[in-house]
């Protein structure tokens, strides 16, 4: 029983990390349609920000975290300006932006590898180790609640929704598409950066940590459905529980557990590509 409880807390904590990455995707996909695989590298940048400020310069955690998130907003903004806006303005197909962001993915990763070397770097935990998982869960819930309120209760959130439904109509209504796009990238980068910061005490900051996170987050998004914010959370938790339950109970070598989310991803893409939760009409 105790075993099951421990497993649940641990799965919930990694599920929350996936959920944050899924949220980062979702924030950008909904208004722009762009699947940005660089979210994993953003998480890595967040983790290295944590290493720099919290480990190296020993800032207090809250201050360091705020600075990292602020920096991530800037990273998102710059990414959009470089790799997305010029293409949107030229009327290039969506695919061009997605491919340019793949180029940025490599630039981020190699840039970090160049600056910090190939070795993993320790990032301190915000609270003592036994409460770390609860902290991750709590922080994620706060973020999801805030994003949910933003979409449901604020005018800006409605603007995002309108753009998600119909770009042309939204533009006619006087919604500034460029601002919504920039905001979605900044917000996506902050969500991904937070995921990186929160996962780093366990995994360390490492320049190759991005792509696995990007894929797990994506799986969570596909399972939960792109239509609703709650879907990202649900999807993240499902992926993590599936993973950990397989490791614990299935008669398979533990390495195969990594394959579970991938099989889930393929299965959902083939059987139910809209995900579990559908967009509200």
């Amino acid at each position: 029983m105790r075993d099951l409880l421990e497993l649940s807390v641990s799965a919930a904590a990694s599920g929350c990390i996936y959920a944050l990455v899924a949220l980062a995707y979702l924030l950008m996909i909904r208004p722009t349609g762009v699947i940005n695989f660089a979210v994993g590298e953003w998480a890595m940048v967040g983790a290295f920000g944590g290493f720099l400020l919290l480990s190296k310069y020993e800032w207090p955690y809250a201050l360091g975290m705020a600075a990292v998130l602020g920096f991530m907003l800037l990273v998102g903004w710059i990414t959009e300006r470089i790799a997305v806006r010029p293409l949107v303005e030229r009327g290039a197909p969506l695919l061009a932006a997605i491919l340019a962001l793949l180029g940025m993915l490599v630039v981020f990763r190699e840039g970090i590898s160049l600056g910090f070397g190939p070795d993993p770097h320790q990032v301190p935990e915000p609270v003592s180790f036994e409460y770390l998982k609860l902290f991750v869960i709590g922080a994620t819930l706060v973020v999801f609640a805030a994003v949910w309120l933003f979409f449901e209760r604020t005018l800006w959130g409605k603007a995002f929704e309108a753009v998600a439904l119909n770009r042309r109509a939204a533009a006619l209504m006087g919604i500034d598409l460029r601002r919504v796009t920039v905001a979605s990238f900044a917000g996506g980068a902050a969500a991904a950066g937070l995921a990186g910061l929160l996962v780093a005490p366990n995994t360390s900051a490492h320049y190759l940590m991005g792509v696995p996170l990007a894929i797990q987050g994506f799986t969570a998004l596909v399972i939960g459905g792109v239509g609703r914010v709650e879907g990202a959370l649900l999807g993240g938790l499902l992926v993590a529980f599936a993973e950990q339950l397989t490791v614990r109970y299935a008669p398979l070598p533990s390495g195969y557990a990594q394959g579970v989310p991938l099989l889930l991803l393929m299965l959902f893409l083939l059987v139910r590509p809209t995900g579990l939760l559908r967009a509200r009409a």
Binding site: I82, A100, R109, E110, G111, L114
Partner: peptide
């Protein structure tokens, strides 16, 4: 770190 050049070239 040649991949850095590839990524930049791609963009």
């Amino acid at each position: 770190h040649h991949a850095l050049v590839f990524g930049a070239l791609m963009v």
